[in-house]
Nucleic acid binder design. Structure first.
Lengths: 264, 264
DNA sequence: CACTATTTGTCCGTATGTATG
DNA sequence: TCATACATACGGACAAATAGT
């Protein structure tokens, strides 16, 4: 990929004033996210020469120091290599086979997925859910549920690709940081006597909020793939609400169907 | 909601070190976001007394000035009211969304979908596909395939919600505007002697390009739900590539699973 | 080999924003 | 409100490595 074509691509963002100092996010970090996103999703491919600090500064209206800082952070993560006199080269190899999860029989496959990925626990607490959730879970005003916030990363590159947020009707003792490393949430629920009878899932897309964007190294409003899951126990009572947000450049859902003559 | 219970709830965030200065986001803004989120989603309800600057500062380990700045920004947005000597009161009224989205789960599969929706044909042509597609379809340099571009609308409100783009290895005579109104593409293929044996599907998300955004009445770069489908004939040869882009506010993919004891 | 243009690395000074006490 | 410390962002200046003539 030529440097001029990269500039042309990036210039669109520049001219759209994608980078702004209105928010509290530093400029160097915004540029960092923008570049990282394009490297990860293969828009800027392996071996490409990035534009020089000078050029990037001009296209985005930033000083060289600011651009340098953004590129240095990419270099720390080994996504690019920087050499005096030679410029900055992309050293991340885009993999056309990102993490994929089958859609059918998802429960088992989340477990197999667990073996090739890492999980980082951001938050575990017994807390009062927002009003909407409270109502759906059938909670009174002061009652609490167990909140889990986790980020999943690829095992090899340690790239964050999923942001999980869940509310569960169970005491916090059900989950512990240690237990979550070796078991899925569903397993821990069953060990606590909660047997699921039905699961409803909804797949959609939504823009990244700032906190999710920060954790997944994306820019705000980047498109995310979303899976919302509601789990019901034997009595049909809603006991668990899970909201998964995925970086679509890394994670996708896949399914394959064999068709016989009878099928449409 | 009592001040102590609010503190108790917030304290969990504090003790989890939800607020950190590792990232580039300023502390006052992190606290601001945390509070705003809980007010907007109803976790902290209308009329509640927020903890004092002093108390918040202690729970999160922040100085009073930093807390003050966060609360001031909430007050600018009229989410809270601050009075000397009286403290800070929540003035935002949480309103539960009255409508449970009727569109959710509107469509269980593409076949039945055809009956409750309208289709608008944007383009039908026998043309040379781009290089990438050509390669996948196994086409020589000058060979053509059949390109279809369609938009799908809801039957009642005539809202465009899906943008279909497909390349098919078949003469253009297979499809006609009239035939497409009454049959699915798959049906028309079978009538032409092409029997599918396998389908691969990939679900992802991507930003709306300007042309798609225009057709779906969305802004550029809005998140879209994407379904990419590849269909193979009896010999395992790729004969059809379909790219569906959905407005996630109108169309979502829903599934429900009954679980028995054997399942994980 | 020198000479030059390019590009990154390093350093300075300055102004503003953030955070503490 | 003030003093202090550190991070962010800018502009400028110069050094050091690279590549081409």
């Amino acid at each position: 990929m030529t440097k001029t074509s990269i500039i042309a691509t990036l210039k669109q963002y520049g001219s759209q004033q994608e980078l702004t100092w209105e928010g509290p996010t530093p400029l160097y970090h915004q540029l960092y996210s923008l570049l990282k996103e394009q490297i990860i999703d293969g828009t800027i491919s392996y071996g490409s020469q990035l534009p020089t600090e000078q050029e990037l500064g001009e296209t985005f209206g930033l000083s060289r120091i600011t651009v340098k800082r953004a590129m240095d952070e990419l270099s720390v993560e080994k996504l690019v290599e920087r050499r005096r006199g030679r410029g900055t080269t992309v050293t991340y190899k885009y993999k056309p086979k990102p993490v994929k999860a089958p859609l059918v029989g998802m429960l088992e496959n989340i477990e197999t997925m667990g073996r090739h990925t890492l999980t980082r626990l951001l938050d575990i607490a017994e807390a009062i859910p927002p009003a909407e959730i409270r109502e759906e879970l059938g909670l009174q005003d002061g009652q609490t549920a167990c909140r889990l916030v986790r980020v999943r990363l690829t095992e090899d590159e340690h790239l964050p690709f999923a942001y999980y947020f869940s509310w569960t009707l169970t005491p916090i003792s059900t989950f512990s940081e240690e237990a979550l490393k070796h078991n899925t949430r569903i397993e821990l629920l069953r060990q606590n006597g909660i047997v699921l009878s039905r699961i409803d899932q909804l797949i959609s897309a939504e823009p990244a909020t700032s906190d999710v964007a920060r954790e997944l190294d994306l820019r705000e409003n980047s498109p995310l793939l979303v899976l919302a899951r509601r789990s019901y126990d034997k009595n049909g009572k809603l006991v668990d609400m899970l909201h998964c947000r995925y970086n679509p450049a890394i994670f996708q859902y896949q399914m394959s169907m064999e068709l016989n003559e009878e099928n449409h």
